[in-house]
Computed example of a mutant assay.
Amino acid sequence: MDASSSPPEKNLILVHCEPNGVALVTINRPTSLNSLTRSMMADLAQAFKRLDMDESVRVIILTGSGRSFCSGVDLTAAEDVFKGDVKDVESDTVAQMELCRKPIIGAIKGFAVTAGFEISLACDILVASKGAKFIDTHARFGIFPSWGLSQKLSRIIGPNKAREVSLTATPLTAEVAEKLGFVNHVVEEGEVLKKAREIADAIVKNNQDLVLRYKAVINDGFKLDLGHALSLEKEKAHDYYDGMTKEQFRKMQEFIAGRNAKKQSKL
């Protein structure tokens, strides 16, 4: 399907669901380097909400059209954006991404600036092009962060590096971001979507119920200290196995037996 935002900004958020269970979401305002208006943010939020409820969708890839991923908020409409209700979950892009049960792969090329940086942080896996840059300009323009950049980045790349990136508005290159564990893969610009699809295809092949549960326990556990996170895993594992039927255990054993048989035939 193809979905777009409401008039007058039609076709600025595109959604295409592929037959293999992968949905491609594209920020489609290339002439403005995919800068976001308030209505685009709401449309992007609703796109993730719909895809989360669509049982045919198993993985979501988020990208931008043209030469940039997202250059942040359209500052010509800054008052309209920032005077809005930042606590409105329904129209909050990052909130809906965080509520989304499906894995989200960010396919980043060019610039991911401020709001674009925060949207990148809300993805579960990131593929970036060589030379791509993540830039936090909150301090430069006097904009207070509200999509998590001030808290998430330090937890991923360390507080010292995060302070440097945010307080100086210094670009974080894809290559450095990969070394710091923020970006998963850095590839040639023309290979970004291809690599994202390879990762999505690998996820689609796995048990969908477990993929959803695994993403949730990783993300929920990351917010806790290790002791409580380990307790969370134990609790979720107990609930999962306690709810499994004998038929499910039998299928698990058959799968393992079949895999071992394939290994033996290759020897």
Rank of each mutant, 00 (worst) to 15 (best):
residue 158 G to M: 03
residue 227 G to N: 11
residue 150 S to M: 09
residue 114 T to I: 03
residue 137 T to F: 02
residue 37 T to C: 12
residue 4 S to G: 04
residue 51 L to D: 01
residue 124 D to Y: 10
residue 37 T to Y: 07
residue 245 T to L: 01
residue 30 P to W: 13
residue 90 E to W: 10
residue 66 G to M: 06
residue 28 N to I: 09
residue 213 R to V: 12
residue 145 P to W: 02
residue 193 L to W: 07
residue 50 R to T: 12
residue 190 G to W: 04
residue 100 C to P: 09
residue 7 P to Q: 11
residue 18 E to M: 10
residue 47 A to C: 05
residue 73 V to I: 06
residue 57 V to F: 10
residue 198 E to R: 14
residue 5 S to D: 09
residue 256 I to G: 01
residue 131 G to I: 10
residue 231 S to R: 12
residue 101 R to F: 03
residue 168 T to R: 12
residue 159 P to K: 04
residue 44 L to A: 14
residue 140 R to V: 12
residue 148 G to W: 01
residue 106 G to A: 10
residue 65 S to G: 06
residue 164 E to L: 11
residue 204 V to S: 15
residue 60 I to Y: 02
residue 155 R to I: 03
residue 181 G to V: 11
residue 226 L to T: 10
residue 156 I to Y: 07
residue 220 D to Q: 14
residue 218 I to P: 14
residue 33 L to Q: 12
residue 211 V to Y: 06
residue 14 L to S: 00
residue 177 A to S: 14
residue 131 G to M: 13
residue 25 V to Q: 04
residue 140 R to G: 04
residue 115 A to W: 03
residue 63 T to F: 01
residue 85 D to K: 04
residue 144 F to G: 14
residue 105 I to H: 08
residue 160 N to H: 06
residue 169 A to V: 02
residue 184 N to Y: 10
residue 259 R to E: 05
residue 172 L to R: 05
residue 126 L to Q: 12
residue 98 E to F: 15
residue 215 K to F: 10
residue 124 D to K: 10
residue 86 V to Y: 00
residue 69 F to T: 05
residue 16 H to C: 07
residue 47 A to F: 04
residue 120 S to P: 08
residue 84 G to A: 11
residue 245 T to Y: 05
residue 77 A to E: 11
residue 253 Q to V: 09
residue 159 P to Q: 06
residue 255 F to L: 09
residue 133 K to W: 05
residue 68 S to R: 09
residue 162 A to R: 06
residue 195 K to D: 04
residue 176 V to G: 01
residue 117 F to A: 07
